[in-house]
Design a protein around this nucleic acid. Sequence first.
DNA 1: ATATTTTATATTACACGTAAACTATTAATC
DNA 2: GATTAATAGTTTACGTGTAATATAAAATAT
Lengths: 160, 160
Amino acid sequence: MASNQPPKNPALDQAAQSSYLKLWLELARTSKTIEQQMEERLQTEFNQSFARFDVLSQLERFDPERLPMGVLAGNLLASKGNITRLIDRMIKDELIDRKPSPQDRRIIQVGFTNQGRQLFKKMAQAHAQWSSEILGGITKKDADRMLKMLRTLQATSDID
Amino acid sequence: MASNQPPKNPALDQAAQSSYLKLWLELARTSKTIEQQMEERLQTEFNQSFARFDVLSQLERFDPERLPMGVLAGNLLASKGNITRLIDRMIKDELIDRKPSPQDRRIIQVGFTNQGRQLFKKMAQAHAQWSSEILGGITKKDADRMLKMLRTLQATSDID
DNA sequence: ATATTTTATATTACACGTAAACTATTAATC
DNA sequence: GATTAATAGTTTACGTGTAATATAAAATAT
């Protein structure tokens, strides 16, 4: 009698599904809350957006080498179309500049101005500081555990 | 005599700071990757955006009761300014409708159309399914652990 | 009852995201 | 070497987010 085994389909298991659904929703909510915190602080302290901070972070990784628009777009999860205008505004604020490549006339190289480099240093330091403040509610050990889990998630969700 | 204790300031501890910084960056990256996955699937399967799904989710929680714009905006982490246009477009697609409250003529009540209710059911089911698929890379146990940590983070980052 | 304040929503202006179409340049192929 | 394909950026159109301001209605304070 009772043991008419239902087919085991993990994806359809009600309890497990609910766990992953809740996890995903909470992941999104938490990430957005923190991002808003960071946005707000960047805005009030430096009058800069998170998107701009992201651009500067990429430039810093290669500094003093300059980066073509496409590479920038690729690393930012932002599309080319968007980068153009973002970069335009940042140039107007003299955080970065733009020079055509002498080798390939299609390519435009983006790099720091001195002003931009100085500003980024301050922003990066504040950003690291804020991370501790905002995420300090969990222990460092838990933070490391969570980081590992996130990397696992990242690896699987990225590819498929 | 070595014991000139340096002031213990967790926020300035270099190693811990790095942990939290990495955690925050990975949190944002993972969340964005998954959100893009969801966006893409919602778009191809249902021709709907995640923002729209979010609206429908809120409506469903109170259905068949209708919701005023302001309440909707509050629960969505989206600002009022945006909601108006988003709702406009969804009404044009006949997913929801909008009626003035007879009691309070400032208030506009938003609710499902039958078509919207039906569509949402399918979307919600697919969304739960996709959560398992995308997040299934970690065990259910780990998912529950992470959920707890996220709620801790949410609690601390939300308030300050 | 009128004036003031608060509340609910809409409107505007702008930053940022995507996709698709377009331009210019370079590379590949015949 | 001329045609074709690929690549780098820009432009355009649109969806979505915020903030600031406006408008209308309701609640209140006098």
